[in-house]
């Protein structure tokens, strides 16, 4: 899932980069997105709840790292998160806030207080996860750059849709118990560095 997300950015313009700073920041964002898709398709039963929770927290902090990387490193970027900013930036912020909300209310104490009926928790958790992925997908596609061609955008949107709609079938392929949250973190770091290096390495 991670590899597919990154691979699609390389289809049309593999050597197109925006400098180490920008490419690392976006590499972190793609890692968070790939992780969200992975977390979705690996949430079949029996679910290793502890691993799912920990991986969720790691992905939330990776998504936050993507936002803070740009906010702290580019003095002009904060203007893109103020009134008048383009919709895709608001949707990026929305997906981050929704991810944070989804994860925090899923902890046992809050979950039992908010959702006495467990099936309701499942319904809302899935709805929030799908909304987070949909908003993040739009954020990535509308901001363009690495995914600047129509067919690239269609493939990328198809991947996100496949992870959401094809989840029941995909969950049978993945074994949540075998997923270590720290291996996900390590994978995110390695993929981000490879992504930035491939776009900035001298030809």
């Amino acid at each position: 899932m991670f590899a597919a997300v990154y691979a699609m950015t390389f289809i049309a313009t593999p050597s197109l980069g925006a400098g180490w700073f920008w490419d690392i920041g976006n590499g972190i964002g793609f890692a968070a997105f790939g992780g969200l898709l992975f977390l979705t398709v690996s949430s079949g039963r029996p679910l290793n709840v502890r691993s799912h929770q920990r991986t969720g927290y790691i992905l939330l902090f990776i998504a936050m790292a993507h936002a803070f990387w740009f906010l702290l490193g580019d003095a002009a970027l904060s203007q893109y998160l103020k009134p008048g900013a383009p919709g895709y930036m608001w949707l990026g912020l929305f997906s981050l806030a929704l991810l944070a909300a989804m994860i925090t209310v899923a902890l046992p104490t809050d979950r039992q207080r908010l959702y006495p009926d467990h099936s309701k928790f499942h319904y809302w958790h899935r709805l929030m996860a799908k909304s987070t992925i949909a908003a993040a997908t739009y954020h990535i596609l509308a901001s363009g750059f690495y995914l600047n061609n129509g067919y690239q955008k269609a493939l990328f949107a198809g991947l996100a849709l496949f992870a959401l709609i094809g989840r029941p079938a995909l969950t049978r392929l993945f074994h949540p118990a075998a997923t270590s949250p720290f291996s996900v973190l390590l994978l995110c770091i390695v993929m981000t560095l490879l992504f930035a290096a491939a776009r900035n390495a001298p030809l």
């Binding site: 803070f68 906010l71 702290l72 490193g73 003095a75 904060s78 944070a100």
Partner: peptide
């Protein structure tokens, strides 16, 4: 972290150099 993010958006980055 959320509060820090809001402050950075409003006041600007403390480490990014000159602000536009």
């Amino acid at each position: 972290l959320a509060l820090t993010g809001i402050l950075v958006v409003i006041l600007g980055s403390p480490i990014a150099g000159p602000q536009p």
